[in-house]
């Protein structure tokens, strides 16, 4: 076969997939940046506005709150998710009866769609008929307005995220644990290392690249939280649960200010890109 025809078929094989990727990933990324310098909307002709959107953004009190909420949410979800995922992985990595059942239970929330999770938790948090307040009343404790109280609504959403994601963290940690060779543990046992010493001196350091990978993935994912907020609180009460992507959605599809929303999206895009690049860089360092 001639080289030429192989190359032609190679391009033909790649073209459809690459077309989709360019149309729905590369072009949008470029467009977002471009649109952020315009006032594009459906209502009037578009014109360039320079840095106006960014200036407005940096003085927008509601955007500041959304950024703050996003940071609180990201930190508050990422760390507990990883911690619980690690504990669960270490626990189900041992052999005991019912191990597969426990592992499956921990993984169930990750299989459940976001909206089904949100729906079930809306019912659990329901102020009057909800089981959580029923439980509190049974215990003689005061009921809570879980999603209606601005001081606890964001926390209540974070609980749902942690519940949904720690099973995924567990599965990734399990893969990491299975990569640790048994002889490392045997050597430690011969040296009479205690169980906690083994955990902190062997297991955790040998999992550091997995931990790092998870950290980046969870940060990138949490920074973009939207569906949960849309379905459970709509950003309320009093913007207490409004995040960057939620506000971007409102600005674009609620107020049709696509240019301004693109500026928000661009800020988010570069923040996330920065985290991804740091992640890729550190991951490479760790492996070498």
């Amino acid at each position: 076969m001639q080289r030429g025809s192989t190359a032609t078929s190679a391009y033909l094989f790649i073209a459809p997939a690459l077309f989709i990727l360019v149309l729905t990933l590369l072009l949008p990324a470029v467009l977002t940046i471009g649109m952020s310098f315009t006032n594009v909307t459906f209502l009037r002709p578009t014109r360039l506005v320079g840095l106006q959107n960014y200036i407005t953004l940096f003085n927008d009190y509601r955007f500041h709150q959304a950024v703050w909420n996003t940071i609180v949410y990201t930190v508050g979800v990422t760390i507990p998710t990883m911690f619980l995922g690690l504990l669960a992985a270490v626990a189900v990595n041992r052999r005991f009866t019912g191990r597969v059942a426990v592992r499956t239970i921990f993984y169930l929330p990750a299989l459940t769609s976001l909206i089904a999770c949100a729906t079930v938790w809306l019912y659990l948090y329901e102020p009057h008929a909800g089981p959580l307040n029923g439980l509190l009343s049974t215990l003689g404790l005061p009921r809570q307005l879980w999603l209606q109280n601005p001081n606890i609504a964001l926390g209540a959403l974070m609980v749902v995220s942690i519940w949904r994601d720690f099973g995924t963290a567990m599965v990734i940690y399990l893969a990491g644990l299975q990569d640790i060779p048994e002889y490392v543990y045997e050597a430690a046992r011969i040296d009479d290392a205690g169980s906690l010493t083994i955990f902190f001196r062997i297991t955790i350091p040998l999992l550091s690249s997995v931990t790092f990978y998870l950290l980046i993935i969870l940060i990138v994912q949490s920074f973009q939280v939207f569906g949960l907020i849309y379905a459970m609180t709509g950003g309320g009460p009093l913007n207490a649960t409004s995040t960057i992507v939620f506000q971007m959605y409102q600005t674009a599809f609620g107020f049709t200010r696509f240019g301004y929303a693109s500026a928000m999206s661009t800020v988010l895009f570069f923040t996330i890109l920065l985290f991804s690049l740091i992640g890729a860089w550190v991951a490479r360092k760790l492996r070498v």
Binding site: L27, P28, L31, A252
Partner: peptide
Amino acid sequence: ALVLALLMVPTQSQIIPVFLI
């Protein structure tokens, strides 16, 4: 390399231009 770079594009933040496209 382009495919690998596109792995890093955060999809949720791209929803507006994808909608317009």
